[in-house]
Amino acid sequence: MIVGERKPFSEILSMVEGDSKILILGCGSCVTVCMAGGEEEVKILGSQLRMAFRRNGNNAEVTELVALRQCDDEYLEDTPLIEKVKDADIVISMACGVGVQHASTFFNRVIDDKTIRVVPALNTTFMGANIDVGEWHERCLGCGDCVLEKTGGICPITRCAKSLLNGPCGGSFNGKCEVNKDTDCAWHLIIERLEALGELDNLKKIEMYKDWRPSHSGGPRKTVREDMKI
């Protein structure tokens, strides 16, 4: 899933300076699961904003709402929601960067009489897995050309700090990465897994230059499923 974390309050506060009607819009998908931008976090940010405003003698009004998924029109096509957005001076989106952009585009498409400002309350950090309660680790970089079949299901592009494709660098020590002693050396994990799988021969083959075009290096990407289009 997409993992995010909330921006510091002061940064969010500076985005809404001068606005008197503020709508906080949470997202009920990934960022709810990673406890960064769901209903609970919307209410906490709302409470913080109201307290901060009251301290400063600011009468701004804060409204709290959650859309099930901000990255999809289907979940934003909701008349009461659109009315609230229309009524607000600014929308603080608690979705990931995808949701912020999509909601912004959507609202500005369906609302004619004004331009809607949508600002982010989160920093989108990575695509990762829930490793423990309250802990998420990055697992995929979205390079567009998966190699996991060769590396025992452990991604060297994402999990090696140097994205090496031909084994561990000289900084692998006691199974840990030199860049961060709390991080496993991806190649150490790969070697152990390949050994268990009986696929150590994979390590002997030279993995050639990666074609980075399917990754972001090729420019913004899109996926089109022609069979789904009318």
């Binding site: 140097k162 994205s163 090496l164 031909n166 660098c169 860049v179 030279i206 993995e207 990666k210």
Partner: peptide
């Protein structure tokens, strides 16, 4: 491959690692 930039005087830099040392030899 090179030491990771985190150890240097510009840890905020973006690294490249387009190819690795073995591919470089090749």
């Amino acid at each position: 491959s090179g030491d990771h930039q985190i150890f240097g005087n510009h840890p905020e830099a973006k690294n490249v690692f387009d190819i690795d040392s073995i591919q470089m030899i090749h």
